[in-house]
Design a protein around this nucleic acid. Structure first.
Length: 426
RNA sequence: GGAGAGGUGUCCGAGCGGUUUAAGGAGCUGGUCUUGAAAACCAGUGACUCGAAAGAGCCGUGAGUUCGAAUCUCACCCUCUCCGCCA
């Protein structure tokens, strides 16, 4: 959520920012409503003041044995006026809230202006893309041939966009989760969290998935719960409505969770393999930081995510997302993209974002720099560290041999019973 | 799921329709005393939201009753105890 004061004071700058995002948004409605609200609010507060004064007088009069019935009658009338006005204020409040919740974040100055992902800017590359002396296969073929992935069984049991991992495939998934968690806790200083996989509506609003993107989420029938689309939601909301002590910052958490996405609007895209699933595993990094550090913290967070790719020996690139492709909540975002031979291009495996105070304002997360200072909003950041299923896909493709076997990256071998290679039936 | 108890300021805790602008502690800040510290004593300090201010709101959340609600009514949420069920 944006600062309502900014919208009042400088609507033009907000308009310009929305424009850069290619968002078509009518701020005039908001400004009109806000003006109306302030008028009514002033009016009702005046009346309430009168009421409060009378409420002090009435007991005094009664005590003194005076007749208060005239005043009471007057107050009865006033009370009705207050109720009517209060109702109007409440209604306009709700409308304003509704609008506020659907205005996206303002991109940072440094974000490249652009329309689509074609306008994203590559920042750096790491690793050598492997040159194959045979025709590399796609991970779904490799996985099925090895008997470690079973898409058909999942389709039978559940439906499209689900997968069974079997044998070494299941173990590889588990190994990666542990490897990511261990690296981020032991080397990068994050505190591990294991969150609930369902959250209520307010939490989804707090991190910005709702109210705008409800069709992307799975709702649990007959409850107010949603399956989490990312651990970002429970972990960020862990500190909802709290004032943190400045000395606690930065707070850094890493969390494994399953993630559930309805993938509305992506029908027909990436239908094969592990790239786009309704359920997938992810290890997520979440930070709560002081505003003045948040862009430095974004760099280190991105670096932390990159580190696990480096350790796995996977070639990747870092891309800075342009204004037109930037997520609703982000002020700035880097994507990490890994090389996928079957796609013959880089594929997203992590998004690292600085939300500035956009989520903090929605979720009410503040801090005091010094114990006596006024509380102010923290900046929140998060990034995948990294998506597990896509990493499996990437390893299968980049580490495949001509005979269909797959070499296990060295750093994972300790997590896989010192196995070095995945062969058929193993 | 059933029965009961409860949710008040940073913390403990009083309050059960009107001088509550939330008692009293603790804590915190300053001071007196002391070689220093502790203790004791004195004074100050009450979050947060909107507002330029005046002022308004805020006692789990939301509705309601009333001229007036922390206090009464209803619904919901959460915590604790016991019972039942269960990985």
């Amino acid at each position: 959520m944006l600062d309502i004061k900014l919208l009042r004071k400088d609507p033009e700058s907000v308009r310009a920012a929305l424009d850069k995002r290619k968002e078509d948004f009518d701020l005039d409605d908001f400004l009109k409503l806000d003006h109306q609200r302030r008028e009514w609010l002033y009016e009702v507060e005046q009346l309430k003041n009168k009421q409060n004064e009378a409420s002090k007088q009435i007991p005094v009069m009664k005590k003194e044995g005076k007749d208060a019935s005239g005043l009471l009658e007057e107050m009865k009338h006033l009370s009705g006026q207050i109720k009517a006005l209060d109702l109007k204020v409440r209604e306009v409040d709700q409308e304003i809230e509704k609008i506020m919740l659907t205005i996206p974040n303002i991109p940072d100055e440094s974000v490249p202006v652009g329309d689509t992902d074609d306008d994203n800017v590559e920042i750096r590359r790491w690793g050598e893309r492997r040159v194959f002396d045979f025709e590399p296969k796609a991970h779904w073929d490799i996985g099925e041939n090895l008997g470690v992935l079973d898409f058909a069984a999942a389709a039978k049991v559940t439906g499209a966009r689900f997968t069974f991992y079997k044998g070494s495939g299941a173990r590889l998934e588990r190994a990666l989760i542990n490897f990511f968690l261990d690296t981020h806790t032991e080397k990068n200083g994050y505190t591990e969290v294991f969150p609930p996989f369902m959250v209520h509506r307010n939490s989804m609003v707090g991190t910005g998935q709702l109210p705008k993107f409800e069709e992307d989420a799975f709702k649990v029938h007959d409850t107010d719960y949603f399956l989490i689309p990312t651990a970002e939601v429970p972990v960020t909301n862990m500190y909802r409505d709290q004032i943190l002590d400045g000395s606690q910052l930065p707070i850094k958490h890493v969390a494994y969770s399953a993630c559930f996405r309805a993938e509305a609007g992506s029908a027909g895209r990436d239908t094969r393999g592990l790239i786009r699933q309704h359920q997938f595993n992810k290890v997520e990094l979440v930070k709560f930081v002081a505003p003045e550090n948040s862009y430095d913290e974004l760099e280190t967070l991105t670096g932390d995510a990159e580190e696990v790719l480096k350790l796995l020996g996977i070639p990747y690139r870092v891309v800075k997302i342009c204004t037109g492709d930037l997520g609703f909540t982000a002020a700035m975002k880097y994507d990490l993209e890994v090389w996928m031979p079957s796609y013959n291009r880089y594929v997203e495996i992590s998004s690292c974002s600085n939300f500035e105070d956009f989520q903090a304002r929605r979720a009410g997360i503040k801090y005091r720099k010094n114990p006596k200072d006024k509380a102010q909003f923290v900046h929140t950041l998060n990034g995948s560290g990294v998506a597990v299923g896509r990493t499996v896909a990437c390893i299968l493709e980049n580490y495949q041999n001509e005979d269909g076997s797959v070499v296990i990256p060295e750093v994972l071998r300790g997590y896989m019973g010192n196995k070095e290679i995945i062969k058929k039936g193993s």
